[in-house]
């Protein structure tokens, strides 16, 4: 243990104080420089952890019947549809026409793209408007109360 008293006696008192000030201050600053990143690292990030293979969409009860919800899946949006009779289905929410984000239209009972009125049925098939291809389907798994969406392999 180094305490100022026990260490060697300096020839000039003025210089000693200056050097020890630097040394002590340096140690404190160094400790801060090391501890700050570590403490910041340990603070859990605001956004929950991203898993690209599957995402937790939320509680089953959060999805009303006859509704659609956009869920973020990695970098892409996925639309989770709960049909009027309670079935859950998930499709890529990226319109196959010009990559707008699609939504669920309760009044038509279809997946609808606001940009050019493209429509997909609840199996993701393009049924009207400009979309050239069906929406990619995702797998929905319900574990207890939790709804998970995962990529179809």
């Amino acid at each position: 243990m180094i305490t100022p008293e026990n260490t060697a006696q300096a020839p000039e008192p003025g210089k000693r104080d200056f050097l020890k000030l630097f040394l002590g201050g340096g140690i404190v600053a160094w400790l801060i420089a090391v501890c700050y990143p570590i403490l910041a690292y340990l603070k859990p990030p605001v956004q929950s952890e991203v898993e690209v293979h599957s995402v937790k969409a939320g509680k089953l009860s959060a999805f009303e019947k006859d509704s659609g919800t956009i869920v973020r899946f990695g970098n892409k949006p996925v639309i989770l549809i709960r049909t009027a009779n309670g079935n859950l289905r998930a499709f890529s929410a990226t319109c196959t026409h010009l990559a707008c984000t699609v939504q669920y239209r309760k009044d038509f009972g279809v997946i609808w793209c606001a940009c050019h009125n493209g429509k997909y049925d609840l199996n993701g098939r393009n049924i009207s408007g400009p979309p050239p291809r069906p929406l990619d389907e995702y797998r929905v798994v319900v574990q207890g109360e939790e709804v998970f969406i995962s990529q179809k392999s």
């Binding site: 990143p37 910041a40 690292y41 990030p45 956004q47 952890e49 898993e51 293979h53």
Partner: peptide, 21 residues
Amino acid sequence: EDLAFESIQFIMSKVQFGWLI
């Protein structure tokens, strides 16, 4: 296998100073 890569990506991007560690 599923999460190893993603979790490191997460450490590198989302966790503060994760890239440094």
